[in-house]
């Protein structure tokens, strides 16, 4: 048996254990965070403003010092092995902080050097081409639009070829087109095996992109779940039927479906599991007809991640 035959499990891309952060003002931003992010996944960290998303990312990247707890990146401790740990990570912060008077090419090259990589013009060229920045390589940053600056920040974060990328609110204040492009880019990176942690408060972003979703609220992780499982577990599908004549009282023949009746009796709502083998819809429609009602209209409604998120955050507070 050669060494390569041994199936060594990869360490988590990011492992956070018992992390707390209390600022000098006494404000407790994080209280006991435990989180494990798998190599190669897209993990979305959702949370309302001030929940601790940016603090958590900043600690992992070395910008903020943790009060207690331990963090590793690809198995490297962020304190004891900070050089190795930080080389794994590229960070795109939330604010558009990207300098002003340097050219795009120079600032991206600077970032690569800062992370200890030898110059590689071919790689930087490819990176700038991928991000549609090649034409702007000699432009000063100050002359670029907000969307372009955001791309420059991504290019800087990727300049040292990290295996983990942090995107802190990547699409805040970004137009629809750039948002689509950015999602596309994130997917391409994932295909190359880059682990991605993105924070967002746009639920649709997490819904669109993430493999797993974590919800953080008031400095605590409220939930971590596969996105599909989460949607299945907490997502509901509803069938709303308009009936005539108005149904004043639900006939006992319809008890099986646990319908909700609107006050005026003109609509009946049926909540069901859309993933189930038998949704019971066909039987319901037949039973309603048999009970003497005509169906004048129908629509289905699916609860979004947004509904799930709002209910989670609300129940936590």
């Amino acid at each position: 048996m050669t060494e390569t035959d041994i199936d060594v499990p990869l360490p988590p891309a990011i492992l956070v254990e018992g992390l707390t952060k209390t600022y000098a003002s006494g404000f407790s931003a994080l209280s006991g965070i435990d989180l494990s992010i798998r190599p190669g996944e897209i993990f979305a960290l959702l949370g309302p403003n001030g929940a601790g998303k940016t603090t958590l990312i900043s600690i992992i990247c070395g910008i903020v010092t943790a009060s207690t707890g331990r963090v590793t990146a690809n198995g490297f401790d962020i304190a004891a092995q900070y050089r190795a740990a930080r080389r794994q990570i590229g960070l795109v912060p939330q604010e558009l902080t990207v300098g002003a008077f340097e050219t795009v090419w120079n600032t991206v090259t600077f970032s690569r050097g800062l992370f200890g990589r030898t110059p590689d013009a071919a790689y930087i060229e490819q990176l700038l081409r991928d991000l549609s920045l090649w034409d702007k390589r000699d432009s000063k940053i100050v002359t670029l639009s907000g969307g372009m600056k955001r791309r420059v920040m991504i290019a800087k974060a990727l300049s040292h070829q990290p295996s983990i990328l942090f995107l802190d609110e990547p699409t805040a204040g970004v137009d629809v087109e750039l948002r689509r492009e950015m999602w596309e880019m994130v997917r391409r990176l994932r295909e190359r095996g880059v682990t991605i942690l993105l924070t967002t408060h746009y639920i649709e972003e997490a819904e669109e992109m993430a493999d797993r979703i974590g919800v953080i609220n008031r400095g605590q992780i409220v939930l971590v779940e596969e996105k599909t499982a989460l949607m299945r577990k907490l997502g509901k599908t509803q069938l709303v039927l308009d009936v005539a004549p108005p149904c004043t009282e639900l006939p006992s023949a319809l008890d099986t479906w646990a319908l909700e009746r609107s006050e005026d009796g003109t609509t009946l709502t049926y909540t069901y599991d859309a993933q189930g083998a038998d949704t019971g819809i066909a039987d319901l429609i037949r039973a309603i007809g048999a009970a003497g009602f005509a169906i004048r209209g129908l629509q289905t409604r699916q609860s979004s991640l947004e509904d799930i998120f709002v209910s989670l955050v609300r129940s936590a507070s």
């Binding site: 900070y82 080389r87 604010e95």
Partner: peptide, 10 residues
């Protein structure tokens, strides 16, 4: 604000 990069670098 660009200091973040220096602080997060190895």
């Amino acid at each position: 604000g660009t200091i973040y990069e220096v602080l997060s670098a190895p």
